[in-house]
Nucleic acid binder design. Structure first.
Lengths: 144, 144
DNA sequence: TAAATAAAAGACAAATATGTCTTTTATTGC
DNA sequence: GCAATAAAAGACATATTTGTCTTTTATTTA
Protein backbone atom coordinates (compact mmCIF):
# COMPACT_ATOMS: atom_id res chain seq x y z
CA UNK A 1 0.00 0.00 0.00
CA UNK A 2 2.67 2.53 1.02
CA UNK A 3 6.37 2.58 0.21
CA UNK A 4 8.85 1.36 2.80
CA UNK A 5 10.04 4.95 3.21
CA UNK A 6 6.51 6.03 3.96
CA UNK A 7 5.98 3.28 6.52
CA UNK A 8 9.24 4.28 8.19
CA UNK A 9 8.14 7.91 8.14
CA UNK A 10 4.89 7.10 9.90
CA UNK A 11 6.62 4.99 12.53
CA UNK A 12 9.32 7.62 13.04
CA UNK A 13 6.74 10.33 13.54
CA UNK A 14 4.87 8.22 16.06
CA UNK A 15 8.12 7.50 17.90
CA UNK A 16 9.23 11.13 17.98
CA UNK A 17 5.78 12.24 19.02
CA UNK A 18 5.73 9.97 22.00
CA UNK A 19 9.28 10.64 23.13
CA UNK A 20 9.30 14.40 22.69
CA UNK A 21 6.18 15.21 24.65
CA UNK A 22 8.25 16.06 27.69
CA UNK A 23 10.18 18.71 25.79
CA UNK A 24 13.08 16.39 25.03
CA UNK A 25 14.52 15.87 21.59
CA UNK A 26 15.00 12.47 20.05
CA UNK A 27 18.12 11.53 18.11
CA UNK A 28 18.23 9.66 14.82
CA UNK A 29 19.82 6.62 16.40
CA UNK A 30 17.15 6.36 19.05
CA UNK A 31 14.42 6.67 16.47
CA UNK A 32 16.03 4.08 14.23
CA UNK A 33 16.38 1.59 17.08
CA UNK A 34 12.86 2.20 18.34
CA UNK A 35 11.30 1.37 15.02
CA UNK A 36 13.86 -1.20 13.89
CA UNK A 37 15.02 0.65 10.80
CA UNK A 38 18.42 1.51 9.30
CA UNK A 39 19.63 4.73 10.92
CA UNK A 40 21.06 6.48 7.90
CA UNK A 41 17.95 5.77 5.95
CA UNK A 42 15.80 7.15 8.73
CA UNK A 43 18.05 10.19 8.84
CA UNK A 44 17.24 10.92 5.23
CA UNK A 45 13.54 10.44 5.72
CA UNK A 46 13.55 12.72 8.73
CA UNK A 47 15.35 15.38 6.71
CA UNK A 48 12.61 15.14 4.14
CA UNK A 49 9.92 15.40 6.80
CA UNK A 50 11.80 18.30 8.32
CA UNK A 51 12.00 20.16 5.01
CA UNK A 52 8.26 19.70 4.68
CA UNK A 53 7.75 21.00 8.21
CA UNK A 54 6.17 17.86 9.60
CA UNK A 55 8.86 17.58 12.23
CA UNK A 56 11.17 20.08 13.93
CA UNK A 57 14.86 19.56 14.47
CA UNK A 58 17.73 21.22 16.29
CA UNK A 59 21.39 20.56 15.63
CA UNK A 60 24.12 20.27 18.20
CA UNK A 61 24.26 19.17 21.80
CA UNK A 62 20.88 18.23 23.20
CA UNK A 63 19.56 18.56 19.71
CA UNK A 64 17.41 16.10 17.87
CA UNK A 65 13.93 15.79 16.48
CA UNK A 66 10.69 16.76 18.16
CA UNK A 67 7.09 17.67 17.49
CA UNK A 68 5.43 20.88 18.48
CA UNK A 69 1.85 20.87 19.73
CA UNK A 70 0.50 21.72 16.30
CA UNK A 71 2.48 18.93 14.69
CA UNK A 72 0.82 16.37 16.94
CA UNK A 73 -2.19 17.07 14.74
CA UNK A 74 -0.40 15.83 11.65
CA UNK A 75 -2.49 13.06 10.14
CA UNK A 76 -1.26 9.84 8.61
CA UNK A 77 -2.58 11.20 5.31
CA UNK A 78 -0.28 14.23 5.65
CA UNK A 79 2.73 11.96 6.02
CA UNK A 80 1.67 9.73 3.13
CA UNK A 81 1.22 12.76 0.90
CA UNK A 82 4.62 14.11 1.92
CA UNK A 83 6.47 10.89 1.12
CA UNK A 84 4.44 8.96 -1.45
CA UNK A 85 2.54 11.81 -3.05
CA UNK A 86 -1.17 11.75 -3.75
CA UNK A 87 -1.37 8.55 -5.78
CA UNK A 88 -3.91 6.99 -3.47
CA UNK A 89 -6.15 9.99 -3.98
CA UNK A 90 -6.05 9.91 -7.75
CA UNK A 91 -5.08 6.55 -9.14
CA UNK A 92 -7.38 3.85 -10.53
CA UNK A 93 -7.04 0.59 -8.56
CA UNK A 94 -6.46 -1.35 -11.75
CA UNK A 95 -3.93 1.19 -12.99
CA UNK A 96 -6.07 2.23 -15.95
CA UNK A 97 -4.89 5.54 -17.32
CA UNK A 98 -8.24 6.47 -18.72
CA UNK A 99 -10.45 5.64 -15.76
CA UNK A 100 -12.65 8.41 -14.45
CA UNK A 101 -16.23 9.22 -13.60
CA UNK A 102 -16.76 9.62 -17.35
CA UNK A 103 -15.15 6.30 -18.35
CA UNK A 104 -15.32 4.31 -15.14
CA UNK A 105 -13.76 0.87 -15.03
CA UNK A 106 -16.08 -1.83 -13.70
CA UNK A 107 -14.84 -1.39 -10.16
CA UNK A 108 -14.51 2.39 -10.23
CA UNK A 109 -17.58 3.28 -8.22
CA UNK A 110 -17.20 0.48 -5.76
CA UNK A 111 -13.58 1.42 -5.17
CA UNK A 112 -14.52 5.08 -4.86
CA UNK A 113 -16.48 4.22 -1.73
CA UNK A 114 -13.68 2.12 -0.30
CA UNK A 115 -11.16 4.84 -1.06
CA UNK A 116 -13.39 7.36 0.67
CA UNK A 117 -13.29 5.31 3.86
CA UNK A 118 -9.58 4.69 3.53
CA UNK A 119 -8.79 8.37 3.10
CA UNK A 120 -11.15 9.33 5.90
CA UNK A 121 -9.28 6.92 8.15
CA UNK A 122 -5.89 8.31 7.18
CA UNK A 123 -7.03 11.90 7.62
CA UNK A 124 -8.82 11.35 10.90
CA UNK A 125 -6.01 9.61 12.71
CA UNK A 126 -3.36 11.99 13.89
CA UNK A 127 0.07 11.21 15.23
CA UNK A 128 -0.98 12.53 18.63
CA UNK A 129 -3.66 9.84 18.83
CA UNK A 130 -0.96 7.21 18.96
CA UNK A 131 0.80 8.43 22.09
CA UNK A 132 -1.50 6.92 24.64
CA UNK A 133 -1.96 3.44 23.17
CA UNK A 134 1.80 3.30 22.66
CA UNK A 135 2.38 4.32 26.29
CA UNK A 136 0.02 1.63 27.43
CA UNK A 137 1.60 -1.13 25.41
CA UNK A 138 -1.48 -1.58 23.27
CA UNK A 139 0.71 -1.82 20.20
CA UNK A 140 4.40 -1.81 19.31
CA UNK A 141 6.54 -0.05 16.74
CA UNK A 142 8.74 -3.10 16.34
CA UNK A 143 8.88 -6.78 17.14
CA UNK A 144 9.90 -7.27 20.74
CA UNK B 1 -1.65 -0.37 -4.44
CA UNK B 2 -0.48 -3.09 -6.85
CA UNK B 3 2.83 -3.49 -8.64
CA UNK B 4 3.13 -2.43 -12.25
CA UNK B 5 3.47 -6.10 -13.20
CA UNK B 6 0.22 -6.84 -11.43
CA UNK B 7 -1.61 -4.00 -13.15
CA UNK B 8 -0.30 -5.24 -16.49
CA UNK B 9 -1.40 -8.76 -15.61
CA UNK B 10 -4.95 -7.63 -14.86
CA UNK B 11 -5.16 -5.61 -18.06
CA UNK B 12 -3.67 -8.44 -20.11
CA UNK B 13 -6.18 -10.92 -18.70
CA UNK B 14 -9.05 -8.57 -19.50
CA UNK B 15 -7.73 -8.12 -23.02
CA UNK B 16 -7.25 -11.82 -23.66
CA UNK B 17 -10.61 -12.59 -22.17
CA UNK B 18 -12.40 -10.25 -24.50
CA UNK B 19 -10.52 -11.20 -27.63
CA UNK B 20 -10.52 -14.96 -27.17
CA UNK B 21 -14.23 -15.44 -26.58
CA UNK B 22 -14.72 -16.38 -30.23
CA UNK B 23 -12.24 -19.24 -29.93
CA UNK B 24 -9.37 -17.19 -31.34
CA UNK B 25 -5.97 -16.90 -29.66
CA UNK B 26 -4.34 -13.60 -28.94
CA UNK B 27 -0.64 -13.00 -29.54
CA UNK B 28 1.73 -11.25 -27.17
CA UNK B 29 2.16 -8.29 -29.52
CA UNK B 30 -1.56 -7.74 -29.81
CA UNK B 31 -1.97 -7.87 -26.04
CA UNK B 32 0.91 -5.47 -25.50
CA UNK B 33 -0.47 -2.96 -27.97
CA UNK B 34 -3.99 -3.24 -26.62
CA UNK B 35 -2.95 -2.35 -23.12
CA UNK B 36 -0.07 -0.04 -24.01
CA UNK B 37 2.66 -2.06 -22.37
CA UNK B 38 6.14 -3.25 -23.42
CA UNK B 39 5.73 -6.52 -25.30
CA UNK B 40 8.64 -8.47 -23.88
CA UNK B 41 7.63 -7.55 -20.40
CA UNK B 42 4.07 -8.67 -21.06
CA UNK B 43 5.44 -11.89 -22.50
CA UNK B 44 7.12 -12.62 -19.19
CA UNK B 45 4.05 -11.82 -17.19
CA UNK B 46 1.91 -14.02 -19.39
CA UNK B 47 4.36 -16.88 -18.93
CA UNK B 48 3.97 -16.45 -15.19
CA UNK B 49 0.19 -16.42 -15.46
CA UNK B 50 0.38 -19.44 -17.72
CA UNK B 51 2.54 -21.38 -15.26
CA UNK B 52 -0.05 -20.61 -12.60
CA UNK B 53 -2.82 -21.77 -14.91
CA UNK B 54 -4.67 -18.48 -15.06
CA UNK B 55 -4.32 -18.36 -18.82
CA UNK B 56 -3.89 -21.01 -21.51
CA UNK B 57 -1.42 -20.81 -24.35
CA UNK B 58 -0.58 -22.66 -27.52
CA UNK B 59 2.66 -22.35 -29.42
CA UNK B 60 3.06 -22.27 -33.18
CA UNK B 61 0.92 -21.10 -36.07
CA UNK B 62 -2.47 -19.79 -34.95
CA UNK B 63 -1.20 -20.10 -31.42
CA UNK B 64 -1.40 -17.49 -28.72
CA UNK B 65 -3.11 -16.92 -25.41
CA UNK B 66 -6.72 -17.54 -24.55
CA UNK B 67 -9.06 -18.17 -21.67
CA UNK B 68 -11.26 -21.17 -21.23
CA UNK B 69 -14.77 -20.82 -19.85
CA UNK B 70 -13.64 -21.63 -16.33
CA UNK B 71 -10.86 -19.07 -16.48
CA UNK B 72 -13.35 -16.32 -17.23
CA UNK B 73 -14.27 -16.82 -13.58
CA UNK B 74 -10.78 -15.81 -12.44
CA UNK B 75 -11.15 -12.91 -10.03
CA UNK B 76 -8.96 -9.85 -9.78
CA UNK B 77 -7.93 -11.18 -6.38
CA UNK B 78 -6.67 -14.38 -8.02
CA UNK B 79 -4.44 -12.37 -10.32
CA UNK B 80 -3.20 -10.14 -7.53
CA UNK B 81 -2.33 -13.17 -5.43
CA UNK B 82 -0.52 -14.79 -8.36
CA UNK B 83 1.64 -11.76 -9.07
CA UNK B 84 1.94 -9.72 -5.87
CA UNK B 85 1.30 -12.45 -3.33
CA UNK B 86 -1.04 -12.10 -0.41
CA UNK B 87 0.37 -8.96 1.18
CA UNK B 88 -2.94 -7.14 1.02
CA UNK B 89 -4.52 -9.95 2.95
CA UNK B 90 -2.00 -10.00 5.75
CA UNK B 91 -0.10 -6.79 6.06
CA UNK B 92 -0.71 -3.95 8.51
CA UNK B 93 -1.45 -0.66 6.70
CA UNK B 94 1.21 1.10 8.69
CA UNK B 95 3.70 -1.67 8.07
CA UNK B 96 3.93 -2.66 11.74
CA UNK B 97 5.42 -6.10 12.09
CA UNK B 98 3.72 -6.78 15.38
CA UNK B 99 0.20 -5.67 14.54
CA UNK B 100 -2.54 -8.20 15.03
CA UNK B 101 -5.87 -8.67 16.74
CA UNK B 102 -3.90 -9.15 19.94
CA UNK B 103 -1.73 -6.04 19.56
CA UNK B 104 -3.78 -3.93 17.18
CA UNK B 105 -2.37 -0.64 15.98
CA UNK B 106 -4.75 2.30 16.42
CA UNK B 107 -6.15 1.89 12.93
CA UNK B 108 -6.18 -1.90 12.88
CA UNK B 109 -9.88 -2.47 13.37
CA UNK B 110 -10.95 0.37 11.18
CA UNK B 111 -8.68 -0.85 8.41
CA UNK B 112 -9.90 -4.39 8.87
CA UNK B 113 -13.33 -3.27 7.75
CA UNK B 114 -11.96 -1.38 4.79
CA UNK B 115 -9.80 -4.32 3.81
CA UNK B 116 -12.81 -6.58 4.03
CA UNK B 117 -14.61 -4.46 1.46
CA UNK B 118 -11.54 -4.16 -0.71
CA UNK B 119 -10.97 -7.89 -0.77
CA UNK B 120 -14.65 -8.59 -1.35
CA UNK B 121 -14.48 -6.28 -4.33
CA UNK B 122 -11.41 -7.99 -5.75
CA UNK B 123 -12.87 -11.44 -5.23
CA UNK B 124 -16.30 -10.66 -6.57
CA UNK B 125 -15.19 -9.11 -9.83
CA UNK B 126 -14.15 -11.69 -12.36
CA UNK B 127 -12.37 -11.17 -15.63
CA UNK B 128 -15.48 -12.29 -17.47
CA UNK B 129 -17.42 -9.39 -15.97
CA UNK B 130 -15.25 -7.00 -17.92
CA UNK B 131 -16.07 -8.27 -21.40
CA UNK B 132 -19.35 -6.50 -21.90
CA UNK B 133 -18.43 -3.04 -20.61
CA UNK B 134 -15.25 -3.23 -22.67
CA UNK B 135 -17.26 -4.20 -25.77
CA UNK B 136 -19.57 -1.29 -25.20
CA UNK B 137 -16.85 1.28 -24.80
CA UNK B 138 -17.73 1.92 -21.19
CA UNK B 139 -14.06 1.90 -20.28
CA UNK B 140 -10.69 1.53 -22.01
CA UNK B 141 -7.56 -0.47 -21.38
CA UNK B 142 -5.38 2.37 -22.61
CA UNK B 143 -5.49 6.04 -23.45
CA UNK B 144 -7.03 6.57 -26.85
C1' DT C 1 37.67 29.65 21.40
C1' DA C 2 37.93 24.60 21.33
C1' DA C 3 35.78 20.21 21.76
C1' DA C 4 31.78 17.58 21.61
C1' DT C 5 27.43 16.70 19.77
C1' DA C 6 23.94 15.97 16.34
C1' DA C 7 21.43 17.05 12.14
C1' DA C 8 22.12 18.15 6.97
C1' DA C 9 23.89 16.95 2.78
C1' DG C 10 25.59 14.29 -0.65
C1' DA C 11 28.22 10.46 -2.66
C1' DC C 12 28.08 5.74 -3.11
C1' DA C 13 26.30 0.69 -3.02
C1' DA C 14 22.95 -2.98 -3.08
C1' DA C 15 18.57 -4.81 -3.99
C1' DT C 16 14.43 -4.93 -6.47
C1' DA C 17 11.38 -3.81 -10.17
C1' DT C 18 10.89 -2.85 -14.78
C1' DG C 19 12.12 -3.26 -19.49
C1' DT C 20 14.82 -5.30 -23.77
C1' DC C 21 16.90 -8.67 -26.64
C1' DT C 22 18.23 -13.32 -28.33
C1' DT C 23 17.87 -18.17 -28.46
C1' DT C 24 15.17 -22.35 -27.85
C1' DT C 25 11.11 -25.19 -28.19
C1' DA C 26 6.63 -26.54 -29.88
C1' DT C 27 3.11 -26.47 -33.42
C1' DT C 28 1.12 -25.97 -37.95
C1' DG C 29 0.60 -26.02 -42.93
C1' DC C 30 2.65 -27.12 -47.04
C1' DG D 1 10.60 -33.09 -43.56
C1' DC D 2 10.84 -27.99 -44.06
C1' DA D 3 9.59 -23.33 -43.45
C1' DA D 4 6.91 -20.25 -40.85
C1' DT D 5 4.87 -18.98 -36.67
C1' DA D 6 4.50 -18.00 -31.85
C1' DA D 7 5.25 -18.96 -26.95
C1' DA D 8 9.04 -20.24 -23.40
C1' DA D 9 13.21 -19.34 -21.45
C1' DG D 10 16.94 -16.93 -20.09
C1' DA D 11 20.53 -13.40 -20.46
C1' DC D 12 21.14 -8.71 -20.19
C1' DA D 13 20.08 -3.53 -19.33
C1' DT D 14 17.95 0.32 -17.04
C1' DA D 15 15.47 2.60 -13.44
C1' DT D 16 13.88 3.02 -8.91
C1' DT D 17 13.94 2.09 -4.19
C1' DT D 18 16.31 1.06 -0.29
C1' DG D 19 20.34 1.17 2.44
C1' DT D 20 25.36 2.78 3.81
C1' DC D 21 29.12 5.80 4.54
C1' DT D 22 31.61 10.25 4.84
C1' DT D 23 31.86 15.09 5.09
C1' DT D 24 29.82 19.51 6.28
C1' DT D 25 27.23 22.70 9.07
C1' DA D 26 25.07 24.32 13.25
C1' DT D 27 24.78 24.43 18.24
C1' DT D 28 26.13 23.92 22.98
C1' DT D 29 29.10 23.65 26.86
C1' DA D 30 33.21 24.16 29.14
Amino acid sequence: MFSKSCEYAIKAMICISQKSRNGKRVGVIEVAESIDAPKHFIAKILQELSRKNLVKSIKGLNGGFYLEKAEQKTSIADIVKAIDGDKIYNQCVLGLKDCSQKNPCPVHNEYKEIKKHLIAMLEKNTIGNFNEPLDNGKFFLKKI
